[in-house]
Amino acid sequence: MAVLETTARDQRAAGEATRRRKNARRTTNPYSPAHRGDAKLAWVLIAPALVGFAVFAAYPTLRGIYLSFTDFAVLSPPEWIGLDNYRQLLHDEVFWSSLGVTVYFVLLSVTLSLIVSVVTAAVLHRLTSSTVVRGLIILPFLISAVVAGTVWWWMLDSQLGIVNIVIKAFGGDGIQFLTSRDWAIPSVALINVWKQMGYTSIIIFAGLQTIPPTIYEAGRVDGASELRMFRTLTLPLLRPILALVVVLNVIGAFQVFDIISVTTKGGPANASNVLQMYIYSKAFGQFDFGYAAAMSLALFVILIAITFLQMRLLRASESDTN
């Protein structure tokens, strides 16, 4: 999981790496005596990683693609059925509703998380550099989604949950947060934002710290207001970090599972049955691994497409200044 959450970060720096590598090659002679015997040692050093890559990354990927064309229930060997799984996918209403539910969750969760995180990071940057405050903000990131989900399941309970009690105290009607069709996904998205917001804020905060203060002094001399400077200086300069954060959040949100599995379990009536939940229940509830593999591949294609689209739209590699 951790690996894929970092896609964007690496793409961003990859270009820089190539550049640096070329410079290195120009200055060092690979056949100099100092590098004699390098090759042998290099292969020894990367051997564990290479085995891990081949056995637990490359092979499962290819095998996942293969399995998506088979009927496979784990206990008996897979049986080739061509495109049947994909045909089934096209007509599977639950799949399409899952996809819809997932996209709805991603949009809600990422938008909200981004707004709150950017504002929080900017406020932190302006007000305090206290590590204690940043530490407190990051607390939800340290606990597991299972813990977070369980706590909010309690706090959002329709009868005894403190949130509903407060709402009722202010004269509102109680809300069936996790048990009604309309509220299930927004509630889960809120829990997710609560859990991720601190992490995202700290990354954006770190980005803000790299902006030289002289830029703001110049803006202030020109008489620009705080809000105006935020819009015309801070946001454009933050673009690369924001692009990274959005891509990471989107990829993570598309694979949401833990919180849902301890709160709504995909219910009520599939209202929060996100893709990963559906894939899991197909594979481990009905042992339809072939079909689950086909859905995984579909999710993979969607993620790749979205990542490329986002990187292009956000022009991640450049900030507005150049």
Binding site: H35, D38, A39, A49, P60, L67, S296, L299
Partner: peptide, 30 residues
């Protein structure tokens, strides 16, 4: 270290970043 195939191996490793967990999790379970 300087060795033949270094750049190729590095690019190969980086492709793994594009593959989301869900695609490898089920086959890895198997």
């Amino acid at each position: 270290l300087h060795w033949r195939g270094r750049d190729f191996m590095f690019s190969l490793f980086l492709t793994a970043l594009m593959v989301p967990g869900i695609l490898t999790l089920l086959p890895n379970f198997v």
